[in-house]
Design a protein around this nucleic acid. Structure first.
Lengths: 85, 85, 85, 85
DNA sequence: AACGCATAAGTAAGAC
DNA sequence: GTCTTACTTATGCGTT
């Protein structure tokens, strides 16, 4: 049983956790980079990326939830006299 | 001229900057707390705060910009066959 | 009693909440702008703003909490053989 | 050549971009979930995740950059009389 | 002017 | 169930 802090058991365990996290973070970052590339490619084809991001968000919602949120927004907008479009 | 690092001129200058920043940050935090309180009060009166936040965001945009963004969103949604409502 | 959605009581109430929020947000933004200005001024005097931000964060912690966190960090760093400096 | 907005060429192109993005986002989210799981597992083994996150951040820096930043922080801390530990 | 960074907002999960 | 805390996304800012 060693007391060397660089080679103790707990340190080894901790290091394994950190390495697993770092590997996963690299993979996560790769995907994020890929996503950025796709948006850049779309932009190069004339698409507006901000609107694309809104579409991606909308497609995540199920249709019922989306309709409900929109209905509430319109009710509130009308109540304060805000013309949504 | 002192060399005491706790009382040198540069340190004094730096400290003045930090103090100015910290004062401003406190004031900024006070406003953030107040905003949270108003939302909480509105929620207590039956309003949906998520929709309120969307309204606040919409009111920040000038009407032309808002209309333009909405038109673009609808064009894109139609193009991919997404029913916005 | 009117049913005109632009002039109903609930709409008025909602609008008051929104206006209170917007006023507070403006004030909050003013402070944020001021903070940015102070950092810019400090930078113009040769200070490193990134380090300044770390100092501001450190000064927010009470000394005991700071010492405790630092001690834990050093323990962990030693355990994995990371030289903090 | 169709004018059906659900089947036009541009819409098809846009949809391809969105699908590519969504696939990548799913993969990215999977990694994020995995990372959360590892932290949770480490926490279950008695580790402090906040400190772990600081270690992960520190390990991202190359040693020279880390040493330089730390030296600057210490210089500044001394200048304002802040005891780092 | 585009790029990455840093802050801020919004969202979702977890603790009490 | 609420309320805080952490994570994710979005926006703006400074930089190159």
């Amino acid at each position: 049983m060693s007391v060397d802090p660089n080679h103790n058991r707990a340190g080894e365990d901790l290091l394994r956790f950190l390495e697993r996290i770092e590997t996963l973070e690299e993979e996560k970052k790769d995907r994020a980079d890929d996503i950025r590339d796709v948006y850049a490619e779309a932009k190069g084809n004339g698409w507006d990326t901000k609107t694309m991001r809104r579409l991606v968000a909308l497609r995540k919602l199920d249709p019922d939830a989306r309709a409900e949120q929109q209905a509430l927004l319109e009710t509130y907008a009308k109540a304060i006299g805000l013309d949504l479009l």
